[in-house]
Amino acid sequence: MATLTASQFANLHTFLVAARRGSFALAAQELALTPSAVSHRIARLEASLGLLLFQRLTRQVKLTQDGERIFVALQASWDSLHAAIAGSDALAGSITVHARPSIAQCWLVPRLAGFAAQYPDLSIDLRVGNDSVDFRAGQVDLALHYGDGSFPGLASRKLMDEWLAPVCSPAYAREHGLQDAPQHLSSATLLHDTLAWPACAPDAEWRLWLDVQAPGVRLPACSLRFDRADLCAQAAIHHAGVAMGRRQLVQPWLASGQLVLPFGGFTLASPQAYYFVHSGRAALPARVQALFDWLLVQGRGQTRRV
């Protein structure tokens, strides 16, 4: 078997970083090189392999099928090498996590200090957004989604369930006479998370709750719409209307008294739940498994209704 030269090893490492970042420019920043140097290293690697590893697009690069195949193998080898260097009992390195904005803001971020204290040699690169995650490029290790558990082509595991109930500020409840009177919602402003879960109707959560808890009440004409549940809750705190609260997200604001439950507690189980999602192409690296297991423990403490 041929031995890798220092130059070939450097080219492979450059390819690994560029594939993970999806950008020659970002790879150059990480490697303290110029984008031109990164491009030349990739070109030399492609020439030596006789393969095209990247599609060069206007503002980005994308792995070809050959590039993705080599990236998966190289990433697994790199993880094994890193673990061997660190030692069998050591956990170190970076974990890239993608999460929907609301669960990141209200649930995940407040818990990260505990993870950092337990795993001081692991760092987390948290990215948020409502867009779909492309695991093929290898830029994300683990995603945290709110959905029905259907993630075609990916591996997933439930983190925790969710329950729904309307929430508003105490002042808004008094002003509109809402306490134990859902029929008065007809004169209120409803706050909608239009992207509550993939491909849902803009008012899906409210229709779900009304159909079960207040079937005689119609949706009022006045509403405000957001693409994040935490923004709905913030608007409710500032007396803009009544939001459909998700227990896992709004509990701190209920505890502080900024929000109230005018129609009672969280009695309606959501058909959606929070899931870990990953590519499933191979076993999770030890560093990612550590975060996965730690978050499962956190989620188990959130399953009791209030």
Rank of each mutant, 00 (worst) to 15 (best):
A92I: 09
A6T: 14
W78S: 14
A255H: 13
W206R: 00
A269R: 09
L195F: 04
L53A: 06
R228C: 08
T194S: 11
R287V: 12
G138D: 01
S23H: 08
G114S: 13
L178E: 00
P271E: 14
A27N: 00
A201D: 11
H176E: 13
C168K: 00
A171H: 08
E162C: 13
T267D: 13
N11R: 07
R41Q: 12
Q183I: 05
P182I: 05
A10Y: 01
W294S: 03
L12S: 03
L284G: 02
V212W: 06
Y146N: 05
L31S: 06
L208N: 03
A181G: 08
I42E: 01
S223A: 15
V109D: 09
Q75M: 03
L52G: 08
S150I: 11
A25K: 08
R111S: 10
T5P: 03
A19R: 01
I85D: 09
P170M: 10
L122T: 09
S102K: 02
I124L: 15
A10Q: 12
T3H: 12
L254A: 09
R44P: 04
T14Y: 05
Y172L: 14
A171K: 09
A116S: 14
W163I: 02
P198A: 00
M244P: 03
P166C: 02
A90Y: 09
Q105P: 01
F24A: 08
Q60E: 15
V17L: 06
R304F: 11
V128P: 07
G114A: 13
G216C: 04
A171T: 09
D89V: 14
F266H: 01
P170I: 14
N11T: 12
R207I: 03
V167N: 00
Y172V: 05
A236Q: 02
D131A: 15
L284I: 13
L195R: 04
L91M: 14
L108W: 03
E68S: 14
E175S: 13
L126F: 13
K158R: 14
Q29A: 07
A43N: 12
G177H: 07
G301E: 11
L12Y: 15
N130F: 06
G149P: 02
L249Y: 07
L268Q: 15
I70S: 01
T96A: 12
A86H: 09
F292G: 03
Q234F: 14
Q302I: 00
R111F: 05
A73P: 02
S132V: 14
Y119L: 07
